[in-house]
């Protein structure tokens, strides 16, 4: 474990806590893409299939459970909780996210570390996570002004994988034979997808103005 990875995991946890706070405090999921939340639930379920078979550390197991439980809880909230469900705008959240699932799985069948069930689902989860934010970014562009908590949620979610890139550079420099090409390349693509969001987020922070993504 290194400071970059710990900071990355904590930023990821923070993004989830901010989203939970937004939904709990406002009893609304306006501006939140249900499809992105569903994709993230699939990402965690597919990535942590080894939750009960491979024990790495208490921290690792604890965080995996937190990520799985929180992502399922958020999807449940948006789909079932009557107050929150009412605020979900399905006419804005129209990205065909099942195409992202199909494409990621197809890619995982060809590009993986080992042709085993666990490794193919792990690669699938890596590819899917890289594109999981797309429905959310599209929704933000459509829904005009973005409330602060939703903006912070997307910012921290994008920042965590950026910190993981620093972690991979650090491990590459300090550990012999450290290579994680699938996670690295996918992580760079994932972080690059936030580039324009980061730009507008920085502008809104500098001008102390409302975050606005151009349509």
């Amino acid at each position: 474990m290194n400071i970059f990875r710990l900071a990355g995991d904590m930023t990821h946890l923070l993004s989830i806590l901010v989203l939970l706070l937004k939904i709990y405090a406002t009893k609304s999921c306006s501006g939140v893409s249900r499809k992105t939340q569903e994709l993230y639930a699939i990402v965690f379920l597919a990535r942590y299939l080894d939750l009960f078979t491979d024990f790495i550390s208490v921290y690792n197991t604890f965080m995996k459970i937190v990520f799985i439980a929180s992502s399922l809880a958020i999807v449940w909230c948006i789909r079932v909780h009557p107050m929150v469900k009412r605020s979900y705008d399905k006419d804005l959240d129209t990205f065909r996210h099942y195409l992202l699932v199909a494409a990621s799985f197809l890619l995982a069948l060809f590009l993986h570390e080992k042709f085993t069930f666990l490794e193919i689902f792990w690669a699938f989860s890596i590819y899917l996570e890289a594109v999981a934010i797309l429905p959310q970014l599209v929704l933000l562009q459509r829904s005009g002004n973005v409330d602060n908590l939703t903006g912070q949620y997307v910012f921290f979610l994008g920042a965590y994988r950026g910190l993981y890139i620093l972690n991979w550079i650090y491990r590459y420099l300090t550990e012999p034979r450290f290579t994680r090409w699938i996670a690295c390349v996918s992580g760079v693509v994932q972080t690059a997808l936030y580039a324009d969001f980061f730009y507008y987020y920085f502008i809104s922070w500098k001008n102390n103005s409302k975050l606005k993504l151009p349509a």
Partner: peptide, 10 residues
């Protein structure tokens, strides 16, 4: 199980 070291990240 798989080589635990290869998947020690979240």
């Amino acid at each position: 199980g798989r080589d635990a070291r290869s998947k020690d990240e979240l």
